[in-house]
Amino acid sequence: MRAEVTEAAETTAVEVVDLASTPLRELNQRLHDLAGGADGPRRWRILNPNGAHAVACGIDAEIEIEIQGHVGYYCAGMNKLATVRVHGNAGPGLAENITSGTVMVDGNASQSAGATGRGGLLVVHGDAAARCGISMKGVDIVVRGSVGHLSGFIAQTGRLVVCGDAGEALGDSIYEARIYVRGAVSELGADCVEKELRDEHRAELADLLLQAGIDDLDPSDFRRYGSARRLYNFHVDNAY
């Protein structure tokens, strides 16, 4: 129930940082200083991000952060442990290489959301652009809307759930990641094929949707995609 954490903690003190008057460097340094369980505020609210890049990146602490507004590139990049919620849209590379924790965006995310993520959960309540989940390595990504082309490109492990449609070359050169799409898929990428949706997959889908705070969709309406494994060991007859 990671999506509910921020509401549950509403009663404790919140450290408010206004980026209109506080340098980003100062904010990130204060967040980094909480690594290793160091004393300090556990709940943060960031005002006026105004599209700034690298907001709340590199955190290594079990804290909660609410960002009120739009963020630029690499928000919550390499996140560890923290729960970060963006009440707005996010630029490219949202939560890139996330290793744990949760990152949620109320609006849309630009390209390469969750790129190379190794763990944790990324939830985009709007649409995600191209290359969502590119080269993902264990992260779980749930997109309430649609994703752009080359999403799940070279995806290694983890799960990508798309409640809307998927653009061209979905799952191109995919390894062992699992992709679930509820809407239409424009085109599957190299070595990506549709696979049977079994009960175990419905169960993990239901869990992922629950974690993302999505309770109005039936896991049985999704289709599952994964690797045909024809490119795992090169053979000229399988080359594209």
Partner: peptide, 29 residues
């Protein structure tokens, strides 16, 4: 045991303007 072929392009930036922002992120982290 698979043949591993790494990507030739970075997954989260393209071109010099993005690179500047990427470097900025790594410095911040």
């Amino acid at each position: 045991g698979i043949d591993q072929r790494s990507a030739s392009r970075h997954p989260d930036w393209t071109g010099p303007d993005d690179l500047e922002i990427k470097i900025g992120e790594l410095r911040e982290i």
